[in-house]
Design a protein around this nucleic acid. Structure first.
Lengths: 214, 214
DNA sequence: ACCTGAACACCGTTCAAGT
DNA sequence: ACCTGAACACCGTTCAAGT
């Protein structure tokens, strides 16, 4: 039932689902406990993406970047799916397949299982967050840049001097640009993590950075 | 009206808001067009966070990390706010103040305005996405790790060998760990971006606009 | 100008009653 | 066992009518 692509997330009601399946809304509760459970099942099924493998001659950075772009493109093509993605869904089989793949990649690159898991989670967080950020904007794509330029230009120069000064430049930065630069930075950071000592093996002794919170 | 903290996002209905304000639901539409407009106004007001400045003796990496952690802690303390955050809200004055601050930081560090903007956006994307990922989990914090361990352990070893093999290690990685490692990687990547040539000035900016200034 | 009461068209969920 | 019809308690939004 990935036909929320056609009418959007707002139309994904129990009544509409039942109509599409040719039964009444009450019947759905015989197969599913909540609407939330139905959504969880739907989401995991909709993430049958990373099936196409990255080019085999690429290094691990290239493969990670390739998969991340593939995942992002898939979500951008199916905004309804993306708007339903929360963090609780790491349990479905398709999500776990993604975790398994990432672990394989990052452990093979030299990270400890712990760091590989954290790196994979960070990457997924960034990809999903990046799509969330650009959800309502792609529809108004041609107007979007102009709108942002006008918004930035008309701010108070005393309060936001840099925004006003560079309004034209900032307005031209697309969601793709942001994603590519962030993706690159993340992978560069992972590579640095590998090259530094003490991180290829797991020892949860405190590292240089202060990780403590209040 | 940040009293969605007490009852959660599901209770943020026009009827409840009106009751809290001592009027009827219909009256709200005299001051606001949609529920969405009300939410947008509410969100920007709820992001009056970064008011406390980072320590002045830190370098730009330290300041960026400090602000990112501050923002994340604020969102974790107010889950209702975080669950309403989408990407469309960069227009409010408080959000723009965050953009202005980040631009100041990254341009001062040596990035071009374009890259500084993309870096700031990536960082915000990561912070917000990280909070989204951990939203429903912090409540069940004590049980969460055990639950994940059991889930990972019971998977099919043929399909998810690495997950099963390292189940105990992976289950112990907390949301804080993931965030710290991703944050570190992002900032490391930004630093590498600065040190590489050709990035401190804007290449494809042929316009007369000055792109770097004191 | 601002507010009210009442309605409209929805929503998720439940439940006795059918077969 | 599975489905149905009808109801319940909500929701966002609108609008004639008040003051």
């Amino acid at each position: 039932m990935a036909l929320l692509d056609t009418r959007g997330v707002a139309a994904l009601t129990m009544r509409n689902i039942a109509e599409g399946l040719g039964c009444t809304q009450a019947s759905l509760y015989r197969h599913v406990r909540n609407r939330e459970e139905l959504v969880t099942l739907l989401i995991d099924r909709a993430i049958s993406v990373a099936s196409s493998a990255p080019p085999d001659d690429a290094d691990w950075v290239g493969k990670a970047a390739w998969s991340a772009r593939l995942f992002r493109d898939h979500l951008l093509r199916h905004p309804g799916v993306a708007s339903l993605l929360r963090g609780t869904e790491r349990l479905g089989p398709n999500s776990l397949a993604g975790v398994q793949y990432s672990l394989d990649l990052f452990i093979g690159a030299g990270l400890s299982p712990r760091l590989a898991y954290a790196a994979a989670s960070s990457l997924a967080t960034f990809v999903i967050g990046s799509v969330h950020f650009n959800l309502g904007l792609d529809a108004s794509d041609p107007e979007e840049s102009r709108h942002r330029r006008l918004l930035y230009r008309s701010r108070d120069p005393a309060a936001f001097p840099l925004i006003v000064q560079h309004a034209d430049t900032l307005a031209e930065v697309s969601g793709d640009d942001e994603f590519e630069i962030g993706l690159n930075a993340l992978l560069t950071g992972f590579r640095a993590l590998i090259q530094s000592p003490d991180n290829t093996r797991d020892q949860d002794a405190d590292r240089g950075e202060a990780c403590s919170r209040s």
